[in-house]
Design a protein around this nucleic acid. Sequence first.
DNA 1: GTCCTAAGCTGAACCACCGTCAGATCCAGC
DNA 2: GCTGGATCTGACGGTGGTTCAGCTTAGGAC
Lengths: 202, 202
Amino acid sequence: MPGRRGLATRQRLLECTADMLRSTSYRDVKVIDIAREAGTSPATFYQYFADVEAAILMLAEQMTSDGHRLAMLIRQGPWKGKAGLATATALCDTFFEFWEEYRSILRVMDLATEEGDRRFHQIRTRLLNEVNVALTDAVAQFQESGRHPRELDPTATAAVLVSMLAHVAAHQYGFEFWGIRTKDLRDSMARQIYWGVTGQKA
Amino acid sequence: MPGRRGLATRQRLLECTADMLRSTSYRDVKVIDIAREAGTSPATFYQYFADVEAAILMLAEQMTSDGHRLAMLIRQGPWKGKAGLATATALCDTFFEFWEEYRSILRVMDLATEEGDRRFHQIRTRLLNEVNVALTDAVAQFQESGRHPRELDPTATAAVLVSMLAHVAAHQYGFEFWGIRTKDLRDSMARQIYWGVTGQKA
DNA sequence: GTCCTAAGCTGAACCACCGTCAGATCCAGC
DNA sequence: GCTGGATCTGACGGTGGTTCAGCTTAGGAC
């Protein structure tokens, strides 16, 4: 349990880690650089974190607590008719914002998750499961009312839509570089989400 | 230009790199381990590749040439009616297979692309652009026939669908671990694709 | 103000890996 | 079996990883 000074140092190290991650490839983020940036010695870093991954893990945890707003939007928004399309559009925008803010952490989280890292996978689940459950509920509601193909698993549909949101948000710049405007991506994606949730055309 | 022996050595190093990548986190893949595995010295590795990334880049290039079948499926398949849904389903299956085969390379490619690496971005574009163009054409065709919302950009719609395919294929095991069956994912995804391409319910 | 103590920090050491180069080894063709 | 170019490697200086014993500092007690 670190005291006041220790907490300040740890926070400084976390911030520098986030900075390094923003400006350097994950593979090249070195403890010594983080320490230098924070005006301290590498040994101090190891007092607070077992390795660079552990620091990023902590950053990812901080991020998760900011992720509730994603699920909130889904639960609170209306999904019927024109307002439903507006909710879907707002959801896309919020995903874009969120990814913009935490881009560098999210990409490491994604890699680590795919590499089978349990800790990152758990954090990813905490972040996206909430969204998935909210979306599943929305889909299930419309499925009961009959307009939706019965044979589809609402959880799977929600997972597919969340994947779409996460991946498009992650590669937004790639698409722009390639001539596709973010606004068009958003509109197409919102339409897919509206369809997926309600089973109906707008 | 390496001769016969040189080419064999390079190929062996590439295979060992792919092996290491499968069993080790990207961050921890070391030249010395690859060399050991290949029964050669690190210096030999540097005769063929500038660094580990360069080797992975070459693996990614080999992968790209196997990627044509993805676009082929989209161009050849019928998209109308029940057969259209079958084409969408087959597309999902092919994506799953492809990702299964090249999982470890694809995740590094994704990371590097998001980190702004031009070379990996270019390869990613070569791989997915073809798919995207094929899908864009399919969407545009249905849009002309009027059943599709006019205001949507077909390129963006295609991009959104390709993102969905790539991300779900990448995280297939994550979803299964979490209780969602691959088959259900595939069916939900196929439905979204069918909707996205044709603008109609199945 | 001085002292004391626990919290916090670091210099230095050791080891692994990187990336390079001069020299050793191999082998195809004569 | 000799030779020249292709191929490989041992060894080295340099950087970063990680540890630990010992130093510094904050701040409470007096």
